[in-house]
């Protein structure tokens, strides 16, 4: 069993919900990323989702687009992201790391070379935003050889028939994108999301995580009541943008936000 599944199982065994935190590797500066990853874990994050910077992040809203641009200023590439994961692993062998990005940098590296190097670096899962399962065959084989879990997305527009195929292809967990729109869009209809999540959960045995639009304890708790985990992204990345000048202030603010969400999750699940 991989680190991802064993972690999610352990969280479930303790009757808790998984908290996933998303940051873009290299944002606001490559020197801060590993330190921030440790800080997230210290505040109760179970899984780290590390964004791989790309020039054309077409599914992202303005907040995360800017994070990609900030990282690219420092020439952060897929290779440097893998190096950051290796460094993180020197001190943390336990917390799963999932990469989230776009297909082209992986194509450029080559599927097998990527799987090999990602596995050596200690990567546990991969979300490729613009790669639906229909096009994913060869990459999925390369990942399977190296025991990296491919995680696919479900959307509000996904039909039941597609949902079955997406869940079939996913390993570790499936990721429900809770709104039509880009990352960071506002106005989550929590009741509708919960209904949809309940419907989807009946169709798969995989853990179902929900992301997009979860920004604080108040949005996280009701969704975690029906889902197995929540992903917080733009809310954290907003703080990166606001605290570029001060790494200390940034770490404090990110820690505080994550602590609040963790507390809200634990309280509502107590």
């Amino acid at each position: 069993m991989g680190r991802l599944t064993s972690t999610i199982d352990a969280v479930q065994a303790s009757a808790q919900k998984s908290l996933v935190a998303y940051i873009v590797a290299g944002d606001p500066h490559p020197d801060q990323t590993v330190d921030l990853m440790h800080a997230l874990v210290a505040e109760g994050v179970d899984i780290i989702e590390l964004g791989v910077p790309f020039t054309d992040p077409e599914a992202e809203g303005p907040v995360i687009q800017l994070a990609h641009e900030r990282a690219l200023v420092h020439q952060v590439t897929l290779t440097s992201v893998l190096a950051m994961v290796s460094t993180f692993r020197l001190e943390d062998a336990k917390t799963p790391v999932v990469l989230m990005g776009y297909l082209n940098p992986i194509e450029a590296m080559g599927y097998e070379a990527f799987a090999e190097q990602a596995s050596l670096s200690g990567v546990d899962g991969l979300i490729t935003v613009n790669l639906p399962p229909e096009e994913a065959g060869p990459l999925a084989i390369a990942l399977q050889d190296k025991k990296i879990d491919p995680i696919y997305l479900l959307a509000p527009t996904t039909t039941d028939a597609r949902a079955a195929a997406v869940c079939q292809a996913s390993r570790g967990f499936v990721y429900y994108v809770s709104l039509k729109g880009t990352t960071g869009s506002g106005g989550l209809d929590i009741k509708a999301v919960c209904e949809r999540v309940a419907h989807l959960k009946a169709q798969t045995t995989l853990p179902l995580f929900v992301g997009f639009g979860i920004k604080d304890g108040a949005t996280a708790a009701p969704i975690a009541a029906v889902a197995d985990g929540v992903v917080v992204g733009s809310a954290i990345v907003t703080l990166m943008g606001e605290n570029q000048a001060s790494p200390q202030a940034l770490k404090l603010e990110v820690s505080e936000l994550v602590r609040d969400i963790r507390t809200a999750l634990n309280a509502s699940n107590a």
């Binding site: 613009n130 527009t157 729109g181």
Partner: peptide, 12 residues
């Protein structure tokens, strides 16, 4: 060619 888009657009 093919279809390399986020899941939300597949139905459209």
């Amino acid at each position: 060619g093919g279809r390399f888009v986020s899941e939300t657009l597949m139905a459209a």
